Amino acid sequence: MHLTSFRFGHASEADYHALALFEQQIRHERTPDDPPMTTAFLVNVWQSIPDFVDYRVWALCDAGQIVATGMLHMLLLDTNRNLADLNLAVLAGYRGRGLARRLLREMLPVVIESERTVIVGTTTQAVAAGEHFAQKLGAEARLKTQINQLVLAEIDEQLLQQWLQPNQQLSERFELGMWQGRYPEAELAAIVALYEVMNQQPYDDLDYEPLHFTAEQLRELEQTQLANGMQRWTCYVRERATNALAGYTEIFWHRERPHVVQQGDTGVFEHYRNYGLGRWLKAAMLDYMRRELPMVQFVRTTNANSNAPMLKINQALGFKPYLSQTMWQGSLAQIQHYLDQAE
């Protein structure tokens, strides 16, 4: 088989299109009920990766068709400089031939050169081969997550209206607002601080350091979203007396997948918790979504199984398990040992 490798942002059109065809097949296996993502959408995403992300691909081709890939994703931030996110995928008909092992051997020199010693990767319940391979590597299941889905037509209307009407004391102290698209420049420093609240979400046993974004990096993320056609809405809550942001929730929508909204971060600063702000934010966003995006049928969000406070809110709203995922962690030494043993 022919091996090729490239970096996102520096690949040829032929490479992108071949990879898109492969990704469409892999994604169909994972989520067969979803319509395929178009080639144009996938290529736009890959061509607009932010500069602080080093994203590389190794691909094995059979008769001109990609049949297996290894993707290496490394953040070039001040934290997690020893961590690499590595994901391998093989078409169902080509499994059991050692292709993932061959790709791993090709990727290893870049991992070593980049001084990444902690390796993480994600598997889903839909593809049992992924979990089996992670176990062969000697990796450990460190974080269990669930993609949960809400069917908007089944939402508890009475509960939603209840959460939309906070008590008088809460509404006198706080106010809701909405940003569509780019964050306002005047609020950017406060939004950078607001992003820090997500470092308090559980990572269980992953050796994962908090992420700290600069204002420039947040703008890069926005530019990435705009470039690939993603639209974002941010509902925030502000304390009236201090004008301080207390929490936020975000959703993402793309015209290529008009029936699904991806629920992004939801977070409230610790000193503002236990007032019901999380419920208010989520209800307000759902209410806004139903009015402004009537084509949406499903809302999906990813939660750690250990994130009890957020799961309690989502389950009350009617979110149900859609796809289980596991984040695995291994070491560079474990991968080297596995490859040595396989020779």
Rank of each mutant, 00 (worst) to 15 (best):
L60E: 14
G64R: 00
G64W: 00
Q65K: 11
Q65Y: 11
T69V: 08
T69L: 04
M71Y: 10
M71V: 06
L72Y: 02
H73F: 14
H73Q: 09
M74Q: 12
L75G: 15
L75S: 15
L76A: 10
L76H: 13
D78I: 02
D78K: 08
D78M: 07
T79G: 02
T79H: 01
N80D: 11
N82A: 15
N82H: 07
L83Q: 08
D85G: 06
L86E: 02
L88N: 05
L88W: 00
L91E: 05
A92I: 10
A92F: 04
G93I: 03
G93K: 10
G93N: 08
Y94T: 05
R95A: 05
R95W: 00
G96H: 06
G98M: 04
G98E: 01
L99I: 10
R101K: 08
L103R: 01
L103N: 01
L103S: 05
E106W: 01
L108G: 06
L108I: 01
L108C: 07
P109C: 06
P109A: 05
V110A: 15
V111N: 04
V111L: 15
S114V: 09
S114H: 04
R116N: 13
R116S: 02
V118F: 08
I119W: 09
I119V: 02
I119Y: 09
V120T: 11
T122C: 14
T122R: 13
T123G: 04
Q125I: 09
A126D: 03
A126W: 07
A126N: 03
A128V: 03
A129L: 06
G130L: 03
E131F: 06
E131C: 09
H132M: 03
H132G: 07
F133N: 11
A134N: 08
K136V: 05
E140M: 15
E140W: 10
A141W: 12
A141T: 13
R142Y: 08
R142C: 00
L143Q: 03
T145L: 13
T145R: 14
I147W: 06
L150C: 05
L150W: 08
V151C: 08
A153M: 11
A153D: 09
A153G: 11
E154A: 03
I155R: 02
E157Y: 01
E157T: 02
Q158K: 13
L160A: 12
Q161S: 13
Q161R: 06
Q161I: 07
Q162P: 12
N167T: 06
N167Q: 04
Q169S: 14
Q169T: 15
S171C: 14
E172D: 14
R173C: 04
F174H: 11
F174Y: 10
